[in-house]
């Protein structure tokens, strides 16, 4: 079974040379730490920066340079700043190659819910609805089950949706899964995790086709 860093490490392998990538808050943010350094990738943050670098050294923080999580950041040579409309032109206009975000639930048809739990404080969707409605290539990074041990890979989302039929790939602590027309297709198992473990943790239709290899991370 993977921890959060393990999930990030596995997703980093999906990041290809020349990609512009938008990383969500949480596990997705960790992906930047594991991207191979022999490829060229630029990270976009929807508050208006392309070419994000690491966190600043202490004493070098700039209130005017933050990421979408409102954390102080730095920029790399070649970076650019832009306004919010232009930022979402990059996203809706499908200029961003890969979007990695977290989720509370994903359904077997690719629906995603990650912004609202009725009855609890609602913080808002931020840029998530724009991202999932537009991106061609969306990877969801999440734990396979919630804190109560219930599956987050469902036949149908129970929470209010963020987007419909948009998720293509899911990487969890247990598995790599592709969303197909017929349901969740199991592609890889996490180290030490059996196909049965994954079956038991998946409420939606799980397609198991032949031998399922263990992840190479």
């Amino acid at each position: 079974m993977l921890d959060k860093n393990g999930i990030a490490k596995r997703i980093a392998k999906e990041v290809q040379d020349g990609y512009y990538v938008n990383l969500g808050i949480g596990i997705p943010t960790l992906v930047a730490n594991y991207v191979r350094n022999d490829i060229e990738v630029e990270f976009q943050s929807e508050n208006g920066v392309l070419g994000m670098g690491p966190f600043p050294f202490e004493g070098e923080e700039d209130a005017d340079v933050i990421n979408a999580g409102k954390q102080t950041i730095t920029t790399l040579p070649g970076a650019s700043f832009f306004d919010s409309a232009l930022s979402f032109s990059m996203i809706r206009g499908q200029h961003v190659d890969l979007t990695i975000l977290g989720a509370m639930e994903v359904a077997e048809n690719g629906d995603i819910a990650n912004w609202k739990i009725p009855g609890r404080m609602v913080k808002g969707m931020g840029g998530a609805m724009d991202l999932v409605a537009s991106a061609e290539n969306i990877i969801v990074a999440m734990m396979h089950t919630n804190k109560r041990g219930e599956s987050k890979l469902l036949k149908k989302c129970s929470l209010p949706l963020t987007g419909v039929g948009c998720v293509k790939r899911i990487v969890t602590n247990l598995a790599v899964i592709e969303v197909t027309d017929n349901g969740f297709k199991l592609l890889e198992r996490a180290p030490g995790v059996s196909v049965d473990d994954i079956k038991n943790a998946t409420e939606g239709t799980l397609i198991i086709d032949g031998d399922i290899p263990e992840m190479d991370i």
């Binding site: 966190f55 600043p56 202490e58 004493g59 005017d64 933050i66 102080t72 950041i73």
Partner: peptide
């Protein structure tokens, strides 16, 4: 004032 909401740094 330009207050920072999430001061995030890495050690030198």
């Amino acid at each position: 004032e330009k207050r920072i909401e999430q001061r995030t740094v890495r050690p030198k």
